[in-house]
Computed example of a mutant assay.
Amino acid sequence: MKIALLQLEVLEKNKAANVAHGLQLAAEAAKKHDLLVLPEVWTTGYSLGHLEQEAETPASPVLAQLAEIARNEQCAILAGSVPMRHADGKIYNTSAAINKNGEIVNLYDKVHLFGLFHEEDFFAPGNNFQAFTLDGLCCGSTICYDLRFPELFRHLALQGAQLIFCPAEWPEARGDI
């Protein structure tokens, strides 16, 4: 299995440029890989004060475009994480797993929010930490700060997860959050 870990400079307060660049990199890498992994909050960066206007939904064009890349190139995609508004109206830091057929097979909402960056002021904590199958492989998802809580990984391993994703971004400390 060839895996591409995509890195990109995430521009603060420039979602359109981030999405365009991220999709371009995904389309290029998908031609040569079996699985792509994007970083945490790659669409918006850590300018969290803009999430009310910039949050995606599960039916967003961003996920649809990634699903199309996955389907066209037969490459699974772990869509890093994107701020996502769910049916309950709350915004979560959500990672989507998309199989080679372009189907979303899992949505994981970050459980452990990072207090130093006041994530709890912008995101609701998730509670959906179940293993899932991605193209025949039992997987689990976590996001960044979750890695400091080993019980989450133990829980996924006990469910049979052989591959556990943990996309991350470490923003510089800023005053514009």
Rank of each mutant, 00 (worst) to 15 (best):
A87P: 00
K110G: 04
E40P: 01
Y46H: 12
I69D: 09
G160S: 05
V41E: 07
G22Y: 07
R71T: 02
A131D: 06
A30S: 13
P61E: 15
Q53E: 15
A173K: 10
L158V: 09
T44E: 09
C75A: 10
N72Q: 15
N128T: 07
A26R: 05
G45D: 02
V41P: 00
E68K: 15
T142C: 08
F123V: 03
A168I: 09
A124D: 02
S95F: 06
A17R: 12
E120H: 06
T57C: 10
D135C: 04
H21N: 09
K2C: 00
A26N: 08
D88M: 10
N14M: 07
V19F: 06
A157E: 15
A161W: 04
M84A: 09
L152N: 10
K100F: 01
G102F: 02
S95R: 04
H155L: 09
K32M: 03
D34W: 08
K32R: 10
A76S: 13
S60H: 08
V105K: 11
A76P: 04
E28I: 11
F123M: 03
L48F: 09
P39F: 02
L63F: 12
N106I: 00
A124R: 11
I3T: 08
T57R: 11
G160I: 07
Q7H: 12
V82F: 00
K13H: 08
P58D: 10
E9D: 13
G49Q: 14
A4K: 10
G175D: 14
A124N: 04
A55V: 12
C138I: 14
L158M: 11
F122H: 14
H118S: 11
A161Y: 03
Q162Y: 06
L113K: 02
A59W: 06
D109S: 14
R174V: 05
I98L: 00
I69P: 05
A16C: 01
A30P: 07
L156F: 05
I77S: 01
Y92R: 05
A64T: 11
C75W: 04
N14V: 00
G115E: 13
V111F: 05
I69V: 14
T133L: 12
G136M: 11
A59S: 14
H50W: 05
A64S: 14
R154P: 00
A26K: 04
I91F: 06
I104P: 00
G80M: 07
L35I: 10
G115P: 02
F123G: 04
T94L: 12
D109F: 07
A161E: 09
Q53G: 01
E169I: 04
K31I: 05
N127F: 08
I91Q: 08
L116T: 11
E54T: 08
L6F: 01
I77K: 01
E151D: 15
L8C: 03
A27S: 13
I143E: 02
I104R: 06
N72L: 13
E119Y: 01
E151H: 15
F149A: 11
G115C: 00
I104C: 03
A64V: 06
D109Q: 15
I69L: 09
C144F: 02
V62A: 07
H21L: 06
K13A: 13
D88H: 09
